[in-house]
């Protein structure tokens, strides 16, 4: 019986403290309340596209979802479909072989769209800058709203970037106010 094993497991383990700095979380939440809420209600959906990364950025992007960073507490979540997404998050150098697919993903999204380039590769090609096989950064293939440098950026920096994106951009419409029926 798995439930017995699970229960056994839970009582055998001391509750681990969450180690993400609580002050930092509180500050981020406050910024979110100021910026994000009135624009987007309580959620922002992200579509990630790897456009020629080394897969290091994906590891850290996934880490934003773990129990420590818990991206969803800020109302941020990943969506498989670009059609459901508000943010296009690009990792990688924008390799020539991914240009068409990345642009298609952008076109499939309903405007307004925020584009975030994550990692040195997506900022300007990173160490691969100058390679003839790449466009060299997300901005070479589409307009970018925010760059989050780092190789790879740490999960906390990625979350910072996503929240900053909400703050500095006014292109998203205010949350619709529903009147009485």
């Amino acid at each position: 019986m798995v439930w017995k094993t699970l229960l056994q497991h839970c009582i055998s383990q001391p509750a681990a403290p969450r180690r993400q700095d609580p002050a930092a979380v509180a500050a981020l939440r406050q910024r979110l309340a100021a910026a994000g809420h009135e624009k987007l209600g309580r959620s922002l959906a992200i579509r990630h596209v790897a456009a020629g990364s080394c897969n290091g950025c994906e590891l850290e992007l996934r880490a934003t979802q773990n129990l420590i960073y818990d991206l969803t507490q800020y109302g941020l979540s990943f969506t498989p479909s670009p059609r459901h997404a508000d943010v296009l998050l690009i990792t990688g150098v924008a390799g020539d072989n991914m240009i068409a697919a990345a642009r298609q993903a952008r076109e499939a999204m309903a405007d307004p769209v925020l584009v975030l380039a994550m990692g040195d590769c997506a900022v300007d090609g990173g160490v691969f800058k100058g390679s003839p096989a790449i466009a060299g950064g997300a901005e070479a293939i589409m307009p970018v709203d925010l760059f989050v440098p780092g190789c790879p950026p740490a999960p906390a920096q990625i979350i910072e970037g996503l929240l900053a994106l909400l703050e500095v951009n006014d292109i998203l419409p205010a949350r619709p106010v529903r009147g009485p029926r």
Partner: peptide, 22 residues
């Protein structure tokens, strides 16, 4: 091939210490 970045070509012509970054 979608992640092709030309890595091997970039390593040529560099010193081992520089190429280690690739």
């Amino acid at each position: 091939g979608y992640s092709h970045k030309g890595t091997l070509a970039l390593m040529r012509g560099k010193s081992p210490r520089l190429a280690a970054r690739f």
